[in-house]
Design a protein around this nucleic acid. Structure first.
Length: 800
DNA sequence: CCGTGCAAAAAACTT
DNA sequence: TTTTGCACGG
């Protein structure tokens, strides 16, 4: 425990009327006001940690204990960073300028760009995302014929990533394993090659960004000192999800300054030589869900041992959810044994019960979700306040299919990401080829895109020529005539070379003067036009290519947007931003759409109404987690994270059957459901109601159940005469219909008053038609299924 | 070197 | 179900 002798006096006004402390509960205040070398804020879900962090920063700035430039705040996503910056700005206005508020990765990129020359890179290095790494590893695995030894690209990639997160490298790893094992030997060769290729390409992968920064600091203490002197207050959010490399980075930065080298800059005059920066970390071990990525829960559980004298503040009051939701969450997480007891509570009242629903199929489940969303919407909820979570990205498809038909506006976060689309990666590879000519991967990628007749043979001759003459792959392109290839190919290569040159002149003028902010947009357009990429897509008769052109237009729009936001932004800045954005970052908006995302993406967010879907064994907990140490416990935390995102209403849904890879299999309710006290759940349709498939078999099975109303699912007996409203879906006719190909009703005209027939919902009357063109929506009152909205173009309907 | 067609694999989460 | 990888013929 830290003593109370902290000499610093907090400037400013007394406890009453202080805008930074008003409305905070006592532990929150303490977390804002405490001054000392190390502070751990254990912040339960929804306990206001962002508020505490921002107020703490504002408090440091207001009292002049720190200049903005002396503050480094690390968050997990760019979105969280942006939000924190905005909230600090609200508190202190312009005084926030100069702070580093960013993710681990962006902060490291900034440092590496400045210091790359120190250790054999140039500051124009590029960043390989996981897809780029996989492509490179795939090639190496093939070259080493490693698949024969059971080394798949995926396995190699994850092993390399794990090792880098532990700050190991190929040489270090080689010392720890037996060389008798041929698989290990080949793995080490591949690892070495991988490192070599990255270095040659002047590139870092995601893991390198952290690990290489740590190496840099350790190998060049005087460089590390620059940052140690600069950052006097370091704050780390989501500390429970840091891995060893990130932990080491924080340790390096909070070491006492070693040398007294002068680095210039008036602000630095303030600090005491030799004193370590103060460290604040915020986290909740119950929300640690990234062990698979190397997150080490011990970083937070042993914080007090790592930083003797650290102060610990516990935030348990929840300001987000109703008591019922918290009771459910507490009950679930209590099943994890090795955790410190913690109980979230609220004074917001009991609230609604958790709603449960069991569908016959994933489509049935999705239909329930869509219907319920519409009901919420009619009751006044904004779509933007509703979210649907699932464990795996593949589950989004069924939801999407139903949502499109029900005309529920939705938005998928993550999933098939924009920046992972082939055409976008191609376009970016063109930009990388300009920004970092050493990057062979990028060049090889665009060599034959669009088709220029350059195949593997020609590619090899270029590589050989480069090697023979001691020049780079990029420079070899300038010598088309000497490559020993046919005249057609020579022309193609020369043309590519010219296009790249012209683009370079625009984006990185040789004159040395800074390129104008519009240069990235211009350069990209030139590359896409003159390379023939656009033309090839437009000439294609593949309908998907139309969408590709649109995506590329979108990318051009992104460059414009970037130029607007970053008038000084260079090509490299643009590429860096693109490489480090996650798609969870662009959920900026009040766009009026329901948000669909994985449970992982949901971390750190909150919504009024939350649907947690696919609550089944083998999904959550996921099948693969069963074999991993701590796997099921991490899955439980993930489930807990999902529950605690909800402010007002929580829905838990599952399906009895689930199709994957086109095969239908029977699904079991998740064990986590049983961990929630039965009285908290209001089952609209419990697992017991839908045993067997469809209505036929279930009766027999139901008969065998113990007296209804008392089984472990807390099933209530169904009122005999059908006091319930009809089921939202006509299940007997449902299977198969929804999964049919998207139909096209063309110009089907509907007007209020028309009678229609729907394949699933039967007959109904059109109340109104809204929207235009392909987005026209019919509001229909069905005779038995109630009111629905239908997208006219694709709904399985016919006019009567 | 390119396109076609069939076989086989694939999907757990992310900076 | 959808995507990717390979073999083959042009």
């Amino acid at each position: 425990m830290s003593d109370a002798s902290s000499p610093l006096i907090v400037h400013g006004t007394g406890p009453a009327g202080d805008p930074l402390l008003d409305g905070l509960n006592p532990p929150q205040r303490e977390a804002v006001e405490y001054r000392g070398p190390a502070l751990l804020i254990v912040a339960g879900a929804g306990s206001g940690k962002t508020r505490v962090l921002t107020h703490r920063i504002a408090s440091l700035l207001r009292s002049r204990e720190a200049w903005p430039s002396q503050i480094l705040a690390i968050t997990f996503t760019n979105k969280a960073a942006q939000e924190m910056r905005e909230r600090v700005e609200q508190l202190v206005g312009d005084g926030a300028r100069g702070m580093w508020i960013s993710t681990f990765h962006s902060a490291c990129v900034r440092i590496l760009r400045r210091e790359a020359e120190q250790f054999g890179f140039t500051s124009s290095f590029t960043i390989y995302d996981s897809g780029d790494s996989r492509a490179l590893i795939k090639r190496l695995v093939k070259e080493h014929e490693a698949d024969a030894l059971g080394l798949t690209p995926a396995a190699v990639q994850s092993k390399i990533s794990k090792l880098k997160n532990e700050l190991s490298d190929a040489d270090a790893y080689a010392r720890t394993v037996s060389h008798d094992d041929p698989a290990e030997r080949v793995f080490i060769e591949i690892f070495r090659d991988y490192e070599k290729q990255l270095r040659r390409a002047n590139a870092f992968d995601f893991d390198d960004l952290i690990a290489q920064t740590v190496y840099l600091f350790r190998a060049f203490p005087q460089v590390a000192d620059v940052y140690r002197k600069r950052f006097r207050h370091i704050l780390v959010d989501e500390y429970q999800d840091t891995n060893h490399a990130q932990y080491a980075l924080i340790h390096e930065l909070t070491r006492p300054v070693q040398s007294s080298q002068d680095v210039g800059g008036g602000m630095l005059a303030l600090l005491d030589e030799g004193e370590a920066a103060s460290l604040t970390v915020v986290g909740d071990s119950d929300q640690s869900i990234y062990a698979f990525r190397g997150a080490d829960i011990r970083n937070i559980s042993e914080f007090e041992r790592d930083f003797p004298g650290a102060k610990v503040v516990l935030l348990e009051q929840n300001y987000r959810s109703t008591q019922n939701i918290l009771d459910a969450a507490n009950a679930v997480i209590a099943n994890n044994f090795d955790r410190k007891a913690k109980n979230l509570w609220t004074d917001a009242g009991t609230g609604e019960k958790v709603v449960g629903f069991t569908g016959y199929s994933q489509h049935d489940e999705a239909q329930f979700v869509a219907d319920e969303i519409e009901a919420l919407h009619r009751a006044g909820a904004a779509y933007g306040d509703i979210a649907v979570f699932y464990r795996t990205n593949s589950q989004s498809r069924a939801l999407e299919e139903i949502f499109i038909r029900a005309a529920v506006p939705y938005k998928i976060m993550g999933g098939t990401k924009f920046y992972e689309r082939a055409e976008i990666k191609d376009a970016l590879a063109y930009l990388v080829a300009v920004a970092n000519p050493a990057d062979e991967m990028a060049l090889r990628r665009i060599l034959n895109k669009p088709k220029r007749g350059i195949g593997a043979v020609t590619e090899t001759s270029i590589a050989r020529f480069a090697e023979d003459h001691g020049i780079t792959f990029r420079d070899a392109l300038a010598n088309a005539a000497e490559l020993g290839v046919g005249p057609k190919l020579q022309a193609a290569i020369a043309q590519l070379d010219t296009v790249l040159r012209e683009a370079t002149e625009i984006m990185l003028p040789a004159s040395g003067e800074a390129a104008p902010p519009t240069s990235v947009t211009e350069g990209l357009q030139l590359l896409l036009n003159k390379s023939g990429y656009y033309d090839a897509l437009r000439a294609s008769r593949d309908p998907q290519d139309e969408a590709r052109v649109e995506n590329l237009d979108e990318l051009v729009a992104v460059t414009r947007e970037f130029a607007r936001n970053n008038p000084e932004g260079t090509l490299l800045d643009f590429l860096t931003e693109v490489a480090l954005v996650a798609d969870s970052d662009d959920l900026d908006d009040e766009s009026g759409s329901v948000s669909l995302m994985t449970l992982h993406t949901a971390k750190g967010l909150e919504f009024d109404h939350v649907f947690l879907t696919g609550v089944e064994e083998d999904l959550i907990p996921h099948r693969i987690s069963a074999g991993e140490p701590g796997g099921p416990q991490e899955e439980r935390r993930l489930f807990y994270v999902g529950i605690t995102r909800a402010r007002k209403r929580l829905y838990l849904s599952l399906a009895m059957t689930r199709a994957q890879f086109g095969e239908v299999s029977v699904a079991m309710p998740s064990r986590f459901l049983q961990e929630i006290p039965a009285h908290l759940i209001d089952w609209r349709q419990s697992p017991g109601d839908v045993n067997g498939r469809g209505g036929t078999q279930s009766r027999a099975l139901n008969a065998r159940r113990p007296a209804s109303g008392s089984d472990r699912w807390g099933v209530k007996p169904l009122p005999a005469g059908g006091g319930l409203k009809p089921k939202s879906t006509a299940m007997d006719r449902f299977p198969g219909l929804v999964t049919n190909k998207v139909r096209d009703n063309g110009d089907l005209e509907l007007a209020p008053g028309d009678r229609i027939r729907h394949d699933d919902f039967g007959e109904g009357r059109v109340d109104a038609v809204t929207g235009e063109g392909a987005k026209r929506i019919a509001h229909v009152r069905f005779d038995t299924a109630g009111a629905k909205k239908l997208l006219i173009k694709v709904a399985p309907i016919a006019k009567l």
